[in-house]
Write a protein that binds this DNA or RNA. Structure first.
Length: 511
RNA sequence: CGGGGCAUAGCGCAGCCCGGCUAGCGCACCUGCUUUGGGAGCAGGGGGUCGCAGGUUCGAAUCCUGCUGCCCCGACCA
């Protein structure tokens, strides 16, 4: 009965799977640790298609948690969802010069629309008769198709602002891929907005940057820096790219979200004009912004440890797992019943709970499995607990255990979940602060990057050439220019060229 | 696209140099019994076109040729 129930409800989330007892440590080999963790925690795997991954139920559940939090934040800021086509006519794509240049090298192209049986009897071939008149690009991003559509939607200032988001997949034909961090196809959301004035569009781009930073810090428990990208790192077709940058445990930075002020570039390329209050034809102002499944990679690399995944309570598919412990059928019946009773109690206050009442696995195995998969809190209930009205409570982040009264447990767990969420953030913040250094000169800069990693604050002369040289020599790039860079106007000299600098910028090696 | 490596059961590997009988091991899987408060034990069992195509040979996982796929390292990227 219990076995049947488990299968019916959870077979898709936690399949029977052997956990490796020994995960390679972060210190031994960070990237292998990352790869093994993703696969062994059952989040994703490589697929039969080169560069593309299969997101497995547990990984997808994390994405769904992210989606629902973000989607609410988008709606709360006045956005609505829509959906635009996967395919973009080649001619659209080439209308904005910088945009094409930026994406041309990594586009998948559809050239035919039909297959046929090979005349030589060797399977299926592309029918050469079925060549498309105009090739279609599989979207690497949707600005072009969206702006072509917006032209028809916008006539007057009364149609503005237009605040639309879409949840979609995109394809960028990458040479080298890594699960979640860089795959040929990935899932994301892309917001595309149209405004009557420059000020409003810029404010929108900054507002969404704030939304992303809020999400990263309060849901993912990842501290992020907000800033502006240098010209080299700017989105193809944007006037300005704002970003949030996070620091991973190996000292490399990861761009966790971007928000672009597109100026009138796309409006001009796609001829999107509106009639202003003054009865004048004007080009609209645009933004776009996105975060992707890459965030899952950021989540893993920020919090997880040598024992496996560590998930922040707000995004964990299950916040609490309850493991019943028993010897006899009677004990099984009693502890499983108590576990479900507890689950009901916890669910009632909004906690996501799973009872692991599989009779096919021993408790020790379950402990190890849920620990590896990063469930924030584990409760164990055995015969002794039934007698004493207690539970054993274990925290994933600290790996500590305690016996506690079952009385009022739901309030205790609510508090504890908050505490874990905060503790993860604080720990990550502390690590980032400790990994952020100021370099007074180029030698110091190189020394820090080579031996310590992390963010390096340094003066820069503001030219793309200097950034390029530094990149070539050290592999570090400017991750961001602080938002208050212009106002602060600290003066100094560029560590590379010795020319005047307007302020410190963040350098790091990046994913 | 350049350099290196790998391809044998679901996964991880051994066997290959030096060809030979029915291709083996660990984990996973199935059955039974004993177990269950930190990854259970024993017994039995199922599962393989040895990446593909050709060649050498009485005989090929093993030797030769060609192909394909994958992984790692470098130039591009959220």
């Amino acid at each position: 009965m219990c076995k049947y129930k488990w299968n019916a409800f959870f077979a898709n989330i936690i399949p029977k799977f052997y956990m490796a007892k020994n995960l390679i440590t972060r210190k031994e080999d960070y990237s292998q640790w990352y790869n093994d963790l993703i696969i062994k925690a059952d989040m994703a795997e490589t697929s039969a298609v080169r560069g593309c991954m299969v997101i497995k139920p547990y990984g997808y559940a994390i994405w769904e948690s992210m989606q629902s939090a973000l989607d609410k934040m988008f709606k709360d800021t006045g956005h609505v969802n829509a959906y635009f086509p996967l395919f973009i006519p080649k001619s659209f794509f080439s209308k904005e010069a910088n945009h094409v240049e930026g994406f041309a090298k990594e586009c998948a192209v559809v050239t035919h629309y039909r297959l046929k049986n090979d005349e030589g009897g060797k399977g299926i071939v592309v029918d050469p008769e079925a060549k498309l008149e105009e090739e279609l690009i599989v979207r690497p991003t949707s600005e072009t198709i969206i702006w072509d559509t917006y032209r028809k939607w916008i006539q007057s200032y009364r149609d503005l602002p237009l605040l639309i988001n879409q949840w979609a997949n995109v394809v960028r034909w990458e040479m080298r891929t890594r699960l979640f961090l860089r795959t040929a196809e990935f899932l994301w959301q892309e917001g595309h907005t149209a405004h009557a004035t420059q000020e409003e569009a810029e404010a929108e781009a900054k507002r969404m940057l704030e939304v992303y930073a809020d999400f990263a810090e309060n849901f993912m428990a990842i501290p992020v820096h907000k800033g502006v990208k240098s010209a080299n790192e700017r989105f193809a077709g944007a006037v300005n790219t704002y970003c949030i940058e996070a620091l991973m445990q190996d000292g490399k930075a990861l761009q966790a979200g971007t928000s672009h002020f597109l100026g009138q570039n796309f409006a001009k390329a796609f001829d999107v004009k509106f009639l202003s209050k003054e009865n004048k034809q004007e080009y609209v102002w645009a933004t776009s912004w996105g975060v992707s499944t890459r965030l899952i990679g950021a989540l893993v690399m920020t919090h997880s440890d040598d024992n496996g995944l560590v998930l922040p309570p707000k995004l964990a598919p299950f916040q609490v797992v309850i493991v019943p412990i028993y010897r006899t059928p009677e004990e099984m019946q009693a502890t499983v019943a108590k576990a479900h009773e507890l689950k009901t109690l916890l669910s009632r206050v909004g906690i996501r709970v799973k009872v692991d009442d599989r009779d096919t696995q021993k408790p020790g195995f379950k402990f190890a499995e849920h620990e590896f998969k990063g469930v924030p809190i584990r409760l164990a209930i055995g015969p002794r607990d039934l007698e004493n009205n207690t539970v054993e409570l274990a925290r994933r982040d600290t790996l500590t255990k305690e016996n506690t009264s079952a009385e009022g447990i739901e309030m205790k767990i609510l508090d504890l979940l908050d505490e874990i969420q905060k503790s993860l953030f604080d720990k990550a913040l502390k690590f980032r602060e400790e990994s952020t250094r100021v370099a007074a000169n180029y030698d110091e800069f190189k020394e820090i990057l080579e031996n310590k990693g992390g963010f390096v604050l340094a003066h820069w002369d503001g030219t793309p050439e200097t950034e390029q040289k530094i990149k070539e020599e050290t592999k570090a790039t400017i991750r961001l220019i602080p938002l208050d860079y212009e106002e602060k106007a600290e003066t100094g000299t560029c560590i590379y060229s010795g020319k005047p600098s307007k302020g410190l910028v963040y350098f790091a090696k990046a994913y």
